[in-house]
């Protein structure tokens, strides 16, 4: 029943626009996508494989600093994502279920990392934990290093990727509504049971979608991580930092080999995103689900 009003105007438009407008627009779109997306994408892989598959594998696995960069990214990104799942679910829950003073401010604050430059985000942590500050000096004197060490990489990554989970969950939680939760509560469910048995099943696709986006961004994050990493080779270089370092050292095939891994990751993310999208949309439209 929803299909009809959607297709009719589309058909009418198709006839109304002159052919050259259609061809021009389609051509322009394809041209831009080709130039900005397809050509660089193909270029990354062709440069990475320029010296053959053997050299490609060697570039990825022979250098201990490159291996460590891959390892570090696989450690840092999941922890940052996990932090954001906890904070994101809590924030989305609070915003969708309660009306409280400062709620509008909170909604705005969640989006802050989107509008703050990642470099500034990194500097925030340097200003907080740097050697010139009281907190930083205290930690240093007690033998713990936050800045220029993996903990800061996690903090900076988590800050930059914070909005992904919360942003994804707020509309899902609002669409689902509190009715099922209220019913469970009236039947005597504890808070914990309510969360795991009612809320989580309702939001799981939205949550997964947020986690995937969040993870992709976390693994690719450069600016904030660059500022807080201290660029110590084989110790605080994540994959994107290592790509830049290899490129600056004029080791282009190795830089592109590592870049191709990041690109593959992006492509996998894209496929997962396409697979999950319909389920998320169904969650956001409870009426359609009921009908």
């Amino acid at each position: 029943m929803a299909a009809e009003p959607e297709t009719t105007p589309l058909n009418r438009r198709r006839g109304a626009d002159p052919w050259y407008v259609r061809y021009l627009l389609v051509g322009l779109t394809l041209g831009i996508v080709g130039l900005l997306v397809l050509v660089p994408l193909v270029n990354v892989f062709s440069q990475a494989l320029a010296n053959g598959v053997g050299a490609y594998v060697r570039n990825l696995f022979a250098d201990p600093d490159t291996r460590h960069a891959v390892f570090l990214t696989l450690m840092v990104a999941p922890v940052a994502v996990a932090l954001n799942v906890v904070f994101g679910v809590a924030a989305a829950w609070a915003i969708a279920r309660f009306r409280f003073p400062g709620r509008a401010v909170l909604v705005t604050l969640i989006d802050l990392p989107f509008s703050v430059s990642p470099v500034v985000a990194g500097l925030l942590f340097v200003l907080l934990f740097g050697g010139q500050t009281a907190v930083g000096a205290w930690l240093r004197d007690h033998g713990y290093q936050v800045i220029f060490a993996p903990p800061a990489l996690v903090l900076a990554t988590a800050f930059v990727t914070f909005p992904f989970v919360a942003r994804e969950l707020i509309p899902v939680l609002e669409a689902v509504g509190p009715e099922e939760e209220l019913a469970a509560r009236s039947l005597g469910a504890s808070g914990w049971q309510l969360f795991w048995k009612i809320t989580v099943p309702n939001i799981k696709w939205g949550l997964l979608y947020g986690v995937i986006l969040c993870n992709a961004r976390a693994m690719g994050e450069f600016g904030a991580v660059y500022v807080v990493s201290g660029r110590i080779e084989g110790q605080t270089d994540t994959m994107p930092l290592r790509v830049q370092k290899l490129w600056e050292g004029s080791d282009n095939p190795a830089a592109f080999a590592l870049a191709s891994v990041l690109t593959l990751l992006a492509l996998v993310t894209l496929v997962l995103k396409v697979l999950i999208e319909p389920k998320v949309r169904a969650d956001k439209e409870p009426a359609a689900k009921a009908g």
Binding site: P78, V81, Y144, Q145, L153, V154
Partner: peptide
């Protein structure tokens, strides 16, 4: 399990490498 292990690793990686 993986995330928990990674979190422990990150936390320990903060201790000064003297």
């Amino acid at each position: 399990v993986y995330v928990a292990a990674a979190a422990v690793w990150v936390a320990f990686a903060g201790f000064a490498r003297n």
